[in-house]
Design a protein around this nucleic acid. Structure first.
Lengths: 98, 98
DNA sequence: GTTATAGGCAAGTCGTCACTTGCCTGTCAA
DNA sequence: TTGACAGGCAAGTGACGACTTGCCTATAAC
């Protein structure tokens, strides 16, 4: 019914937010590719299982969609659920020079 | 340095999100006023101390600013920290009729 | 077929967080 | 100044979540 709890839970973890950063940088990565990038670029020594569980949470929140192809599973980011946030609590428009 | 962890932590709790809803509906409420509204409109039987701690988390995230006046403390919502979310992961524009 | 690769499942551990409980401070009215 | 009202502080508890560990399935290369 309401997927927003999953959305905010997904965004609540720093590693998951970094995963979203990496998928923003390069969409459609596999699990191992993401693991490698997190280790290289962010110094995160997370295990494969940990990242796999993070991706499951992101997928349940609708922020990541997956596509199987042979033994590979590609992960694609989908930022559209974020729209519900700014729709729920409207952000005042900045007025630099009125 | 980086206030975003506090931001996402603040948004991670359902009661805190409901508090933001209430402040969106009526800004500048006191602690007891918020407690009453949560009980009445949302059936949340949260104690005063629990709500007080929630407001402290929201304030630390920059989502709520407070203003003391005598023995009252008014709480004001500030949605501008939410902008960093949509700036970090840009939301694709919806194309209804291209 | 055998081996390596890409990923999945499930139980267990440990830390964090929401909430309670109890007591304290400060403001205003009588 | 005494009482009621608005809010704060701090220790303790219980549950959820991140991560590990160990083993299992499936696809592809040799």
């Amino acid at each position: 019914m309401d997927a927003e709890p999953d959305l905010f839970k997904a965004l609540g973890d720093a590693t998951r937010r970094t995963i979203l950063d990496e998928l923003t940088d390069k969409d459609g990565q596999t699990l191992f590719e993401i693991c490698g990038r997190l280790t290289m670029k962010h110094g995160l020594a997370s295990s494969r299982q940990a990242i796999s569980q993070h991706l499951a949470v992101l997928e349940q929140a609708g922020l990541v969609h997956t596509r199987r192809q042979g033994r590979y599973k590609f992960h694609h980011i989908d930022t559209s659920p974020l729209r519900s946030i700014v729709e729920r609590w409207p952000i005042d428009r900045e007025e630099p020079n009125p």
